[in-house]
């Protein structure tokens, strides 16, 4: 999933300061799962904004709404009947959702209420870690299912570097050495010979090096 974290309240307030009526928009997908921008977080943020306003003797009209998916035009279309009831939109979706809104409603100010963080998964309840950087040319088939691009701090394709100690990365206690994990997996799978093959320099074009990426499925695209 795409993970996100709410921005500091002060930053959010600075965006919406000039406006009287706000549409606070959640998304039912990834940001709901990572507890950053689903229906519940929309409620908590609306309440926080309202209280900040009241505290300063001001008030604001906040309309709470959560779309099934903010990154798809079909769902964003749902907003047409209500969009004009707001002076600005505050989105709790990832950056993809925010941009979808900005593209669809060209004259409506749209602001992000979360910082989009990374593509990751849940380690345990309340903890998410990065797993993929969308390099466009998946290596997992030769690295035992563990990604050195996303999980090695130096994205070494031929690691581990000399800073790996007891399975921990040199950058800190919390980070596991990706190459240590890869090695343990290759051992478990009986594929240690694979380690000796040098992984060649990566072609970053697939990873965004040649500009914004696009997928066109001829069989689906209209």
């Amino acid at each position: 999933m795409i993970t996100a974290e709410r921005k500091p309240l002060d930053e959010i307030l600075s965006y919406i300061k000039p406006f009287k009526r706000i549409l606070l928009l959640g998304c039912n997908e990834c940001v709901t799962v990572c507890a950053a921008g689903g229906r519940k977080e929309v409620g908590v943020l609306a309440s926080g904004i309202q209280m900040s306003m009241l505290k300063n003797g001001a008030s604001i009209e906040i309309r709470e709404h959560t779309l099934e998916r903010q990154c798809d035009p079909e769902y964003v279309e749902e907003l047409v009947p209500i969009i004009d009831s707001a002076d600005a939109v505050l989105s709790m979706a990832c950056g993809c959702g925010v941009q979808q809104l900005a593209t669809r409603f060209k004259d409506k100010p749209v602001f992000p209420a979360v910082n989009t963080k990374f593509m990751g998964g849940s380690d345990r309840h309340g903890v998410w870690t990065e797993r993929c950087q969308g390099c466009g040319d998946c290596l997992l088939g030769v690295t035992g299912g563990i990604c050195p691009i996303a999980k090695c701090a130096k994205q070494l394709m031929n690691g581990p570097c000399g800073g790996s100690v007891s399975g921990v990365c040199e950058i800190g206690d919390e980070v596991e050495c990706a190459w240590h994990l890869i090695w343990e997996r290759l051992k478990a799978l009986g594929l240690t010979d694979q380690y000796l093959e040098i992984m060649p320099a990566k072609d970053w074009r697939a990873g965004g090096g040649s500009g914004p990426r696009k997928i066109v499925r001829e069989d689906l695209a209209e």
């Binding site: 519940k40 409620g43 908590v44 309440s47 209280m51 009241l54």
Partner: peptide, 11 residues
């Protein structure tokens, strides 16, 4: 008890 309940109580 949810964060939302606490927020709403104060609000």
């Amino acid at each position: 008890v949810d964060s939302l309940h606490i927020a709403k109580a104060f609000e």
